[in-house]
Design a protein around this nucleic acid. Structure first.
Length: 258
RNA sequence: AUUACUCUAGA
């Protein structure tokens, strides 16, 4: 059984979703019947190949075969939708998951307690929303985590920031970055990079540079991506001189720009 | 043995 699971995982890494499904079929035919590990590996394998429909089908298949989807099944399926560019399908799974977990349940029932969303679930749905430019929804999910008492990780903040950055929502980015710090996390370059990008897209090149200066004083080290984002912000606002200064700094870090 | 986790620009 473990060998099958490993093989299915390997198919996923090579984007061989058809192979992964063949393995699951072989198990249905000749045994051993797949357990949740195998189904989950297959859901993830299809997701990595952009086959979100297959991932959803597997979710139904496992239910029909008496293997109730667990937390990882849902998380993988939502991620699959996100990778396939279908935040709306991911949202459906999320909603179904929450509904199922709110059904009355007691230990005498034959199925295990349906899982509630965890930080990974939120990470998957927020990433899906961000990729689909659904920044408002990403922000709502971030709030929802707070309400439900799910720990907000660096990853979920970064995913939310990335979503807002994509559409130039710099105010929202700044607020979110602030929340991140308030919740005890130290934003690193990846987080600031999104904020700078958002400023650039919003035509706020001066703010972009202000944040670039701010991040160092807050203990985040700018990387190539940071400088590229800041340079692009200047370029988009036609501040060629400032862009050039950043470029020069990248080539020679001793030439400190003003 | 199975799941999210980023990020700039371009292609």
């Amino acid at each position: 059984l473990k060998c099958y699971c490993s093989a299915i995982t390997a198919c996923g890494k090579g984007s061989k979703w058809k192979q992964a499904l063949r393995l699951v079929d072989a198990m249905h035919r000749d045994g051993p019947p797949p357990n949740e590990y195998c189904y989950n590996a297959a859901i993830s394998a299809c997701g990595k190949s952009g086959q979100w429909v297959r991932s959803k089908e597997l979710l139904s298949t496992m239910r029909e075969r008496g293997v109730p989807p667990d937390l990882i099944s849902f998380n993988s399926a939502i991620d699959a939708c996100g990778k396939g560019g279908r935040w709306d399908e991911g949202l459906k799974i999320f909603v179904d998951m929450v509904k199922a977990s709110e059904e009355p349940w007691d230990p005498s029932m034959d199925h295990p307690k349906p899982p509630t969303p965890d930080a990974t679930t939120y990470g998957a749905i927020i990433t899906a929303c961000s990729r689909g430019k659904q920044w408002q929804m990403a922000l709502r999910f971030l709030e929802d985590m707070e309400r439900k008492g799910v720990e907000r990780t660096e990853g979920v903040f970064q995913a939310t920031l990335a979503g807002c950055a994509r559409v130039g929502k710099w105010r929202e980015c700044i607020v979110t970055l602030d929340q991140m710090r308030k919740s005890g996390l130290q934003p690193r370059a990846a987080a600031y990079n999104s904020v700078i990008t958002a400023c650039g897209r919003g035509g706020e090149w001066q703010r972009a540079i202000a944040i670039l200066q701010q991040m160092s004083s807050r203990g985040a080290t700018p990387d190539v991506i940071t400088l590229n984002a800041a340079m692009t912000a200047c370029t988009q606002s036609r501040r060629w001189k400032q862009a050039k200064a950043i470029l020069d700094f990248m080539r020679d870090p001793t030439s400190v720009p003003t």
